[in-house]
Design a protein around this nucleic acid. Structure first.
Lengths: 108, 108
DNA sequence: TCTCTACATATAGAGAGCCTACATGTAGGA
DNA sequence: TCCTACATGTAGGCTCTCTATATGTAGAGA
């Protein structure tokens, strides 16, 4: 899929994937791919900077850990992030409704 | 609505609005607003360059006309554009399905 | 007559955000 | 030893949308 079109929806995706459990970047990428049935192949060069951005925004809290000799930065959703996620969800519904009404008007 | 998030979907919108009748830029903007129930307020600085881009791509054919003393550039969908629209529609369905599956997973 | 609003198109420059390509390093299997 | 999976990160480029601005006509109202 042309993930370029994600423009602006990446945040929602990342927050959503972290809703129920903290994950590190690499695992987030895998989770996105799995949850979307393989459709979302988001490159690392997109995800890591985005996670930093969301952390700066206060939506995520990141923490370093070492597992099996490898360093990981695990992110969890903050309360502010949880609120933001709810906002992103309703924005997504509005967005699809608006585009959908133009693209696939119910003939009536 | 944050039309910035339209990124990449503008083309589909424009092609779709021109599917059944040729329109000029200003009328296209109004049609988008009307069809979306007021949700899509796309600025002229976005639409006019986008129309030129689609014309260069061969999806639209534009023609000058004068109506009531005002000059208009009326665009109609070409055959190539019609094919592109079909592609945009299926891309849109894939896109929403992918994001949707991450954002609002059917709890099951 | 003057002014305002609607109609109508267009460009320049800024900003956002995603991408490609590259850099770095560990662990484990062939 | 080499390759693959795991794991994070930066630099620079590109595309597309936005804001702001410019230009001009037609018609309504003061």
């Amino acid at each position: 899929m042309n993930t370029n079109a994600l423009h602006g929806h990446m945040d929602a995706l990342l927050l959503s994937v972290l809703e129920h459990e903290p994950l590190h970047g690499y695992a987030i990428i895998e989770a996105l791919q799995e949850r979307s049935g393989g459709a979302l192949a988001v490159p690392t060069g997109t995800v890591y900077p985005a996670l930093r951005r969301l952390e700066r925004a206060g939506y995520l809290a990141g923490e370093w850990a070492t597992v099996g000799g490898r360093k990981r930065r695990t992110y969890r959703l903050t309360d502010t992030g949880r609120t933001a996620l709810a906002g992103e969800r309703s924005a997504w519904r509005e967005f699809t409704a608006a585009i959908g009404s133009v693209l696939e008007p119910r003939a009536r």
